[in-house]
Design a protein around this nucleic acid. Structure first.
Lengths: 210, 210
DNA sequence: CCTCTAGGTATACATGTGTCTACCCGTTGA
DNA sequence: TCAACGGGTAGACACATGTATACCTAGAGG
């Protein structure tokens, strides 16, 4: 584990290229991969046992990448609103720079291979947990149970992932998508902050605005 | 348009069966379909020009189904919380009864075929608009702009769709998923209702609970 | 009664696929 | 110097795929 030697890396990168051009990881053929990588089909077997193992390796290659990306995200932000803005900006830029990884993640999270699905879920849940801990440590929201914060984090991570697809392939809509995402996050947390109020109390609050 | 004759229907249903057993619509082969349907491969060409057209027809077959399902949903519920509960219960039961349709929708919404993607988006947006109108007409939330209600509806429809996958294939988690979904919806709307408050006002509200 | 047609079938072809076995070549270590 | 070995190649295998052409049959319409 695990310096990637030439051929192996070439195959993985070929997969990422093919996926960006509208394929799904599970549907790639090994000859297709070799062709794209400029290698002999049989070279595949020098590095991977079969396509399942290949899929897993591509995934962990991506995961490595994503993790290091998201780690950088320890920013200084005072309010949760500011943090939401910073996070969303950062994450979408990251996704934009790594379209293949994003596409793989979105497609395989609900894709046909249970193996890849579980792997991705674990990966996402880990990120969500980190995000939750971060919010708690930095006390970005008040009066909300940790349990709820983690729940919201999980939802948010998934939401962002899916929107990232739109963000990538609809350049004209990027600003709108970013703003929607921020509103989404803020509403979740604001909603959680007033979860203990009755509907009547809420209604008066809502009606009293000008 | 469009009484489905024997063979055509058999092919579409074969597709739905195959998809439930962990395939994706785009990845189906016509021989595979014919085999599953108990027909000669060439019969496919009597009914469809190619696999793309087939995909679209499967989609509209499903759409028909879903639409009629969701239409039944005009229930009587007094509070938005109650409506959320009723809706979520109904929708998840519907998805549970139609796993193939659900799987197709989830897989192809971010799948490799732009054609199917657009078709599905339109379908979902239509449902979201209906949901939004319904909420507005029945005045289930107060003090929230129609624009915001529609935005939340769109997010909710997509959220539910993805969770439906988990709901279907994790029987032990169904109650939890349903509750999470309800909390998700309520937080969105509650969050929207207090969107006009400042953070300081919110913090006092949140800290004052016991 | 004949003809047309919709739906289903059979055969065949070129191309693609995963996998196996065998061969090759440069580096490394003894 | 020689053996082992990691990484790459070549050819061949059985089988799957999309598609084209031709044939068959049951029913409908005149």
């Amino acid at each position: 584990m695990s310096v990637l030697t030439g051929g192996k890396l070439k195959l993985i990168q070929a997969a990422l290229r093919l996926i960006t051009q509208s394929r799904s990881l599970t549907s790639l053929g090994l000859r297709e991969l070799a062709r794209e990588a400029g290698l002999n089909p049989n070279t595949f077997y020098r590095h991977f046992q079969n396509l399942d193992e290949f899929g897993l390796q591509v995934l962990s290659y991506i995961a490595e990448d994503m993790k290091s990306g998201v780690r950088e995200l320890r920013r200084t932000a005072e309010t949760s609103e500011q943090a939401a803005h910073d996070t969303v900006t950062f994450v979408y830029h990251y996704f934009l720079a790594n379209p293949a990884a994003t596409t793989v993640a979105v497609r395989e999270l609900h894709g046909p291979s249970p193996l890849l699905r579980r792997a991705l879920e674990n990966q996402l849940d880990a990120s969500a947990r980190e995000m939750g801990e971060d919010i708690i440590d930095r006390q970005l929201v008040s009066g909300v149970e940790p349990r709820t914060i983690h729940e919201i984090s999980t939802m948010t991570i998934r939401y962002i992932l899916f929107r990232a697809m739109d963000y990538i392939d609809q350049p004209a809509q990027r600003e709108r998508i970013q703003l929607e995402t921020e509103r989404f996050i803020n509403r979740q947390f604001r909603g959680a902050m007033v979860e203990h109020l009755t509907r009547a109390e809420l209604d008066t609050l809502a009606d009293n605005k000008q």
